[in-house]
């Protein structure tokens, strides 16, 4: 991954009348990075992408891609970007092959037909039919192919695997990995935390239009929540582990489950007092970390 900045937003704010789209958003994405953009519905993910593509204009601040201003140099930027919208709408009476050719012909660079053929084979799509005859999943495949076929420097994907079966989802993630291996950049907006965890290098979490956390996936999963199941020799009293960052989440006799975000050493110090027969460390999924973020934000507390 290079340190060259591909996407940069500076105090980016978008308001739809009085409704907030995004507020004072500052994020940067580096070259060769797969950046996951996570947030609940209405958080401002699509709004951010639309500003990047110059589909809408910011109320305040700006966004730059490849060092160019998204509003002033929109067309020049879009020469190097491909985009898969979250709510994909296609021309129903058009054949998929014609649609892909049309999008290819609107690009400045000539389409690599061999690569397109490979994508069609990988996603197992027959493009000879009219779009209205395809299932929802197959329509999504057309969108995915359209996003990848141009071999652009930056690919913006909004919920790329929605409506796809698990096998095809895996193929799409492999394509993202391929793009990353080639040193190109992917901005991936998703609800699916597993896919974000699988392919992204970094994650930005957005809530109510504000970016509340940007972190490397590895750091997020390793430094944050841990879950410990300790089998004690004798049952500890209920108030034995009142430690900041340690939460008892279940108890069955001598078997106690803890969720630990900090002060693991203090927990161990106290645990040995009751004798430890066995300790099992459970993996905490990104999803649980994600919800922990939102819980802490909604309580007005600090990030976990």
């Amino acid at each position: 991954m290079s340190s060259e900045i591909i996407i940069q937003t500076n105090d980016l704010s978008v308001y739809y009348g009085t409704h907030r789209g995004v507020k004072d958003l500052n994020l940067s994405v580096q070259k060769g990075e797969v950046f996951g953009f996570l947030g609940p519905n209405g958080a401002g993910k699509t709004t951010t992408q639309r500003v990047m593509l110059d589909i809408i204009h910011p109320t305040k601040g700006n966004a730059t891609i490849f060092g160019l201003d998204c509003q002033k140099d929109g067309a020049a930027i879009r020469e190097r970007i491909s985009y898969l919208p979250g709510e994909l709408s296609l021309y129903p009476s058009m054949k998929a092959s014609y649609f892909l050719d049309l999008l290819g012909s609107l690009q400045k660079n000539k389409l690599d037909k061999l690569y397109l053929k490979r994508l069609l084979e990988l996603l197992n799509l027959d493009p000879s039919r009219k779009i209205k005859e395809y299932s929802h999943g197959n329509k999504q495949k057309i969108g995915v192919i359209a996003a990848f076929m141009g071999k652009k420097d930056l690919i913006i994907l909004d919920e790329p695997t929605i409506g796809l079966d698990p096998l095809v989802q895996q193929t799409v993630l492999e394509l993202v990995q391929e793009v990353k291996d080639e040193g190109r950049t992917v901005f991936l907006s998703s609800h699916n935390l597993e896919e974000v965890q699988a392919v992204c290098d970094r994650l930005g979490i957005i809530q109510n239009g504000e970016l509340i956390k940007t972190e490397k996936i590895a750091a997020l999963t390793s430094q944050q929540l841990k879950r410990l199941e300790i089998n004690f020799r004798k049952e500890p009293p209920h108030d034995a582990f009142v430690i900041e960052g340690v939460k008892e989440i279940s108890r069955e006799g001598n078997l106690v489950m803890f969720e630990v975000s900090q002060n693991l050493d203090r927990l161990m110090e106290k645990a040995v007092l009751y004798g430890i027969i066995d300790i099992e460390t459970k993996t905490v999924s990104l999803e649980e970390i994600f919800f922990a973020f939102y819980r802490s934000q909604n309580k007005g507390g600090q990030n976990v």
Binding site: A75, A76, R78, Y83, L90, L106, Q107
Partner: peptide, 17 residues
Amino acid sequence: DNGTLELIVAMPLSRGQ
């Protein structure tokens, strides 16, 4: 209204074009 304009606007063409 149909949402297809978003795909066209995302192409490397200016609004004027």
